[in-house]
């Protein structure tokens, strides 16, 4: 029986008041869990409850020993003037630039202020995927991505090591169905 990386047991999560739950699932290495649901259903809140940014009102979250997590945020804010290079952003998560797809390579040598919103979204997503984290949380990673970028992301998800797992939030049902090994429809 495979080791469980993460288990949510009837978790009710939110901020000042509960937003979502009770939610229950467990995640084993090699799994890609898709979270679907309407706007405001609480999909991002589930991710934030796992990282400790949202408050847990009821239930428990059990992590495997030494679980490492990378979290790609929805709508990451692109600082207007910061001359940080793409490669330096990769290094923050210990991500391996050589494992990144070809579409990313030119971005690694560019300063962030030259990025478009879509390029920045792609760079952040790839930094999380190429990091050594055992669990990758992706919040609407397909937002603002063009066809080539979507293909590159699909390829990376397909190549993901079997020792790792992903929780993928997306409104794009076709993308979820293509990549996920299990699905959870979230409702408030």
């Amino acid at each position: 029986m495979p080791e469980t990386l993460l288990k949510l047991d009837n978790v009710v999560a939110g901020y000042t008041t509960p937003v979502v739950g009770p939610v229950a699932f467990s995640l084993a290495p090699g799994e890609i869990l898709g979270l679907g649901g309407h706007n405001g259903a609480g999909k991002s809140t589930i991710l934030r409850s796992i990282t400790g940014m949202a408050r847990i009102f009821a239930g428990t979250i059990t992590r495997s020993d030494g679980l490492t997590i990378s979290h790609q945020w929805q709508r990451p804010e692109l600082p207007p003037e910061l001359a940080l290079m793409g490669r330096e952003l990769f290094a923050l998560l210990g991500a391996d630039p050589d494992s990144a797809p070809a579409i990313i390579q030119p971005l690694l040598e560019k300063p962030l202020y030259q990025f478009s919103g879509g390029q920045f979204q792609l760079l952040q997503t790839m930094a999380c995927v190429c990091s050594p984290a055992k669990l990758v949380l992706m919040d609407e990673p397909t937002n603002n991505l063009d066809g080539r970028a979507l293909d590159a992301l699909s390829e990376m998800l397909h190549r993901l090591e079997k020792s790792r797992a992903v929780i993928l939030v997306s409104h794009e049902k076709a993308f979820l169905e293509k990549h996920c090994t299990s699905m959870l429809e979230v409702s408030p």
């Binding site: 934030r48 796992i50 990282t51 400790g52 940014m53 490492t68 997590i69 990378s70 979290h71 945020w73 990451p76 600082p79 940080l84 330096e88 952003l89 290094a91 923050l92 998560l93 952040q124 984290a133 949380l137």
Partner: peptide, 16 residues
């Protein structure tokens, strides 16, 4: 590097 990580991945430290 800690401040930069917190800027771009705000919950990285808490999550790990």
């Amino acid at each position: 590097p800690r401040l930069l990580t917190a800027r771009f991945f705000p919950d990285y430290h808490k999550a790990n």
